[in-house]
């Protein structure tokens, strides 16, 4: 096992973490500001991926597909907020769960209807298809580095948005006290739609970027949705900083577990079994970490509300 392999796995973990952060940022904002559990967040990720892949395929340009994917996810998010979510803010979490579960069914089948049953494939754009040399004789795909860079930019952007802008001030006020925000003369309906669409766009961005690394298919949003929930709960619901830290933690634990556990297990079991057992245990590790963190800090690492 070389240092280059370790470095490569670390970078993979960071890249996966960044992708999870894009997913979780919207989810945690929507929960923090509106108190809404949105199971359909994974569907918005899927919308971003499908539209980006389809437009890229049709036009031959990833650089047209990407903004199309973002726009489609944001538009879908705004539509969902206006048509459905608005009626659910004063309901309990259970009604929200049932409604957003219904939306998953609708989005999945709708996507299958529009784009067909076959998965779509998205090519890495030529501009980003190179390899960055790593120390030793390894190399690392430029595209994955670009994803990491996008994540850093989004994290900084969100920080500035929330701490420095008028919209951010309204978001913070909304988290602290829903009545206060009304007293400030803020149009809550518009604010909620904007926040929801922003979260949807970030999820769409995650989907669009990941589309070049894996096949784009119906159901792709679901496993990542569960991980995003794990992230926001570990981080502390409503906390962007918590989401960033937890996303990187989950990304690294999952990736490094997958890379190294099977190798470790070959010491104690046949190699044929070690592969599957190792990757299953790696997946389990995330949930072990989460349960341990919640048992230790029942409101996550960075509780947003006291």
């Amino acid at each position: 096992m070389s240092a280059a392999f370790l470095l490569e796995q670390l970078l993979n973990g960071v890249q996966f973490g960044v992708m999870l952060f894009l997913m979780s940022a919207g989810l945690t904002l929507v929960f923090g500001v509106m108190g809404l559990i949105n199971l359909a967040h994974g569907s918005l990720y899927m919308v971003g991926a499908f539209v980006c892949a389809w437009v890229s395929g049709a036009t031959g340009s990833f650089w047209l597909g990407l903004p199309a994917g973002l726009a489609a996810a944001a538009a879908a998010g705004a539509a969902v907020e206006i048509l459905v979510m608005r009626r659910l803010y004063d309901r309990d979490h259970l009604d929200q769960v049932l409604a957003t579960f219904s939306l998953i069914l609708i989005f999945s089948e709708g996507t299958r209807w529009i784009f067909g049953n076959q998965p779509l494939y998205l090519n890495i754009p030529p501009l980003l298809s190179g390899v960055i040399p790593l120390p030793g004789d390894g190399g690392y795909p430029l595209y994955r580095v670009a994803i990491i860079a996008v994540g850093i930019v989004v994290a900084i952007g969100l920080y500035l948005l929330i701490s420095r802008t008028r919209l951010g001030m309204q978001i913070r006020a909304g988290e602290a006290d829903r009545e206060m925000i009304g007293a400030l003369g803020v149009d809550i309906k518009t604010l909620y739609t904007v926040v929801f669409a922003l979260g949807a766009m970030l999820a769409g961005a995650a989907g669009a970027l990941v589309g070049a690394l894996q096949s784009v298919q119906v159901g792709m949003g679901e496993s990542v949705l569960i991980l995003a929930f794990v992230v926001i709960v570990i981080g502390g619901i409503g906390s962007i900083k918590g989401a960033l830290v937890a996303a990187l933690l989950v990304g690294l634990v999952d990736t490094l577990g997958r890379a190294f556990l099977p190798r470790l297990l070959t010491l104690v079991m046949p190699a044929s079994d070690a592969g599957t057992t190792g990757s299953a245990l790696a997946s389990m590790a995330i949930y072990l970490v989460m349960a341990a963190i919640l048992a230790w800090r029942p409101k996550g690492l960075f509780p947003a509300h006291g």
């Binding site: 997946s283 389990m284 989460m290 048992a295």
Partner: peptide, 20 residues
Amino acid sequence: VYFIMITLAFAQMFYYLALS
């Protein structure tokens, strides 16, 4: 929500245990 998610986490552990 923390309760919702921690119970999910335990179920996922059993899921992956069965897989492995």
